[in-house]
């Protein structure tokens, strides 16, 4: 891997995003609007604020994951079909440089995106957070990188942008259903609980909830189990990037 090339890829991806004003605006503004919508929905029905406290943090985990999954799968597919990926791989670019550049660029976007959403949630909408705020943002960034890793991976199996978008209900929606948002994971049928234990988003949502509800003595004033959950998510993200690297081919038939 080369730091020069990884940084060049990341800078180029960010320049492309900056050029596309509409996408850039949606990436930054939509999460804030969605979290506000959630708060507003609970405003009259639940004056204690319990509902928003329960669902706000998971939403902060879900948004960067879903958005980066979609953005990455479509951009990588475009990169594959336009021949620029082949050109890059015929140059001194390592597969790790390519994937690392994307992960870095989207990690930066996720940090800004989640930073804004956390600010809105905490200062404007009074979301209670037990741990330190920066941990909330850190978890969101890891979730975004997880989305990026899985998006890169599925783009190898899509022939068109239509197909790439269809991977969202296939890969993302089951994880949302089984992450414990609708039914607590312990209360699910044993088989589904076991499946839930194998899905990265379950750990991402657990980590986000833990930061919001439980304070502890670990780094960032959170419970140590939060860092264990986040470690699992990091593991899945790295695994996704390694599998994604295996799908990048310098030679094709």
């Amino acid at each position: 891997m080369s730091a020069r090339i990884t940084l060049a890829v990341a800078a180029r991806v960010l320049t492309q995003l900056r050029r596309d004003h509409r996408t850039a605006a949606m990436l930054l503004v939509l999460p804030c609007l969605l979290i506000s919508l959630l708060w507003w929905m609970f405003d009259a029905a639940d004056p204690t604020g319990q509902g928003f406290t329960r669902l706000g943090p998971p939403l902060l985990a879900l948004i960067p994951f879903i958005v980066m999954f979609l953005v990455t799968s479509v951009t990588t597919l475009r990169e594959r079909s336009s021949g620029t990926l082949e050109r890059l791989l015929a140059m001194p670019t390592g597969k790790g440089d390519f994937l690392g550049g994307y992960a870095l660029a989207f990690g930066v976007v996720a940090a800004v995106q989640s930073g804004l959403a956390v600010l809105v949630s905490v200062w404007l909408l009074d979301l209670g957070v037990a741990g330190d705020l920066w941990v909330l943002v850190a978890v969101a960034v890891v979730d975004a990188i997880l989305g990026t890793a899985l998006g890169l991976l599925v783009s190898a199996f899509a022939r068109s942008e239509f197909q790439a978008v269809q991977f969202m209900p296939a890969v993302v929606v089951p994880q949302i259903l089984l992450c414990g948002l609708f039914v607590p994971r312990e209360a699910m049928p044993a088989f589904l609980e076991a499946v839930s234990n194998l899905l990265p988003l379950s750990y991402a949502v657990d980590a986000m909830r833990s930061v919001a509800t439980t304070s502890g003595s670990a780094l960032g004033s959170v419970d140590a189990s939060m860092w264990a959950d986040l470690g699992v998510v990091v593991g899945f993200a790295l695994g996704g990037l390694v599998l994604g690297a295996a799908t990048l081919r310098r030679r094709t038939a």
């Binding site: 020069r4 090339i5 060049a8 890829v9 800078a11 180029r12 320049t15 492309q16 050029r19 596309d20 336009s82 021949g83 620029t84 082949e86 050109r87 890059l88 015929a90 140059m91 001194p92 670019t93």
Partner: peptide, 26 residues
């Protein structure tokens, strides 16, 4: 190597494309 279909980034300027590939090539 130049492929038949141009392999450059449509959403970057000519100079940005060249600067990017120049950095990759060193």
């Amino acid at each position: 190597y130049v492929t038949q279909a141009p392999s450059v980034y449509d959403d970057l300027t000519v100079a940005e494309n060249l600067r990017f590939f120049a950095r990759v090539l060193g």
